[in-house]
Design a protein around this nucleic acid. Structure first.
Length: 576
RNA sequence: GCCUUCGUAGCUCAACGGAUAGAGUGCUGGUCUUCGGAACCAGUGAUGGAGGUUCGAUUCCUCUCGAAGGCGCCA
């Protein structure tokens, strides 16, 4: 199955023969049909060392390869032999060596994929690895906005990519249940007490009330001196777990968490553990005080800071002058707490990019305290979701919530396709959102415009789901009409469109592996879209029913689309 | 002021240092005796600017212009 490995191994032998020093022989996927299925640029590297022309070296490599190629062991599945997998080798200006897969190999690929089914695309690179992934991180008492939704979609997809390579994943979520925002929300709850819904009210009503309460408290905090004082007092009470606010605190926290749970369920994320700031603050503060004695931290203006400036970063306060742990200290305390629960090989923390500089400092402090855990921790940042109408602000209540976006996408689908049932429109609507979020590189901002971003045609989630449905439908129809197979058609050459599809299918496992190591779900998105394009063109030009090879190919496309969409957290439907 | 990230078609996005910079959308014009038209085909159109490194630069380095984010008691 692994043609790339076959080429690489043979290439390495040749390189070793031509060169005294080891040179890395890279084999890449070609981008154009006339450039074959794989190419290597190794001739360029050799040329500068050998002081020859790249083109001459390329020809030399080609003839060496043609002279003696060996099969390799361990190539799973089909043809593990170079000569039957590779149809021909071509040299192209100014020194590329291109490899063309044989038709036999491509035909066998479709069979191979159908045998693998749901497992096609999976690898074992990270077998036995334990990875903890922290993402979404909304704050109780505040709303779940589209930024959280984006973070969730990114985190879920990265988790699935890790899982596809054999890793054991713990999804976790870290939430701020103490702090000024909570005080603001509780203040708002008190002020709006007469509007507070009953316990028995629907979740959406209670969640909406919490959003309003926070906005109210937030507004008053800035415009009203007395309110500000009062909220600061509330904040202290929260840390002290004062009985006067216990009821409201409990209620607000529960409502929020219940609401978040309903969202995770809808999105398909199963968190293994929820962490709260209230539980890691003390651990963090103790760590800071302990290492204050060892001069890792310093006292400054009554606070305890980490002197990031010593390491070309910036200073940050870990314990404020009131003696309370800041976010920094809490994050520090979170690390060993996590590790105790799940002794990971790698811990990934996903946040928006505004925390990039912040995390550099925290991780530097961690490095001084616990180098081992620091080396296992990676911070990954994603961009923010930008709205055309200006910035989103949760302080003023001008937010787009995650739920609103999901509902809006689903109702858009319902409007366009009224006969579709609710279960399907839900999957298609969420698919459109997830696709829109994952098609760009993680780390860049997303320019969000509902009409353009949540597309139902062209490069979109629904297009891929539609293509999947089409593969299913065609196979089903073929079955119903009992069109008998006209023979396996092994003699006639594959046509251009069949070739295009097969040559795309071959690369899926490599794309997945690469997407995991580069943390780029967007490369899976591009791949699946191109596969769909090729399949739809093939469908347009050729009749599938009654032709065994084409049916086999159609099935293989179906499996690949399903597996690929699954990596993006997008569900397929059988009908739409 | 300092630090980080980013400037690619009208718009939204791609492109391990590789070949003629790809898509979607928009606009123009086409395809149907429907195995699902949420489809398919053709045309249109781009690397902010100036240097440098390299066989080769959207990608790496320097400068410059522009945008976003961050910079001790928020998270």
């Amino acid at each position: 199955m692994n043609a790339k490995k076959l080429i690489t191994d043979n290439l390495l032998q040749i390189v070793r023969k031509l060169m005294k020093e080891p040179v890395d022989a890279q084999v890449s996927i070609s981008e154009k049909a006339e450039q074959g299925d794989y190419y290597t640029n190794v001739a360029f590297r050799l040329a500068s060392i050998l002081k020859k022309k790249p083109l001459d070296v390329a020809y030399e490599i080609k003839s060496e390869l043609e002279k003696g190629t060996k099969s390799i062991k361990g190539t799973t599945g089909i043809t593990g032999d170079f000569n039957s997998a590779i149809d021909r080798i071509e040299v192209a200006n100014p020194g590329f060596v291109n490899f063309f897969l044989s038709e036999q190999y491509l035909r066998e690929t479709a069979e191979y994929i159908n045998k693998k089914g749901d497992k096609f695309g999976a690898g074992e690179k990270l077998k036995d690895q334990k990875v903890m992934v922290e993402f979404t991180d909304p704050n109780p008492f505040k709303e779940f906005h589209i930024g959280h939704l984006y973070s969730n979609v990114v985190g879920e997809s990265l988790s699935r990519l890790y899982e596809s390579q054999g890793a054991t994943i713990w999804r976790v979520c870290y939430q701020g249940d103490v702090g000024l925002h909570v005080a603001k929300a509780i203040y708002g709850m008190q002020k709006l007490a007469d509007q507070m819904p009953d316990e028995s009210a629907p979740l959406s009503i209670r969640a909406q009330f919490m959003g309003e309460a926070y906005a109210q408290g937030s507004k008053d905090y800035e415009s009203n001196e007395n309110a500000k004082k009062e909220i600061n007092e509330l904040n202290k009470k929260i840390y002290e777990q004062d009985s006067s606010i216990r009821e409201l605190y409990k209620k607000g926290r529960e409502w929020s968490l219940e609401y978040f749970d309903s969202i995770y369920q809808r999105l398909g994320t199963g968190f293994k553990r929820f962490y709260f700031e209230s539980e890691v603050g003390r651990v963090g503060a103790e760590l800071v005080r302990e290492f204050l004695k060892k001069d890792i931290f310093e006292e400054s203006d009554g606070a305890i800071i980490f002197p990031g400036e010593k390491y070309e970063l910036h200073n940050r306060v870990f314990i404020n002058s009131l003696g309370l742990p800041t976010y920094e200290a809490k994050d520090l305390g979170l690390v060993p707490t996590k590790y105790k629960d799940f002794p990971y090989d790698r811990s990934i923390i996903i946040t928006a990019q505004e925390q990039v500089e912040y995390f550099k400092v925290v991780l530097k402090a961690l490095e001084k305290i616990n180098p081992e855990l620091a080396s296992k921790t990676t911070h990954i940042s994603h961009g923010i979701v930008k709205l055309p109408g200006g910035k989103m602000s949760s302080r003023t209540g001008e937010v787009i919530t995650g739920e609103w976006l999901m509902d809006e996408a689903v109702s858009r689908i319902r409007k366009d396709y009224p006969e579709m049932n609710d279960k399907i429109s839900e999957k298609v609507g969420l698919g459109a959102i997830k696709f829109a979020f994952l098609k760009s590189v993680i780390g860049r901002d997303i320019e969000f415009n509902f009409d353009e971003s949540i597309s139902l045609t062209g490069e979109s989630g629904p297009y891929l789901q539609y293509t999947y449905v089409r593969t299913k439908s065609v196979i089903e129809k073929n079955h119903e009409s009992r069109i008998m197979n006209q023979g396996k058609d092994t003699e006639s050459a594959l046509n251009l469109e069949e070739l295009a599809v097969l040559r795309q299918l071959v690369h899926f496992p490599q794309i997945v592996e690469n997407a995991q190591s580069k943390l780029s779900p967007n490369s899976v998105v591009s791949y699946l879209f191109e596969l769909s394009q090729r399949f739809n063109l093939f469908y347009q030009k050729h009749r599938i029913a009654g032709n065994e090879l084409r049916l086999e190919l159609t099935r293989a496309v179906g499996h690949t689309l399903k597996n690929g969409l699954n990596l993006l957290g997008i569900e397929t439907v059988e009908r739409m």
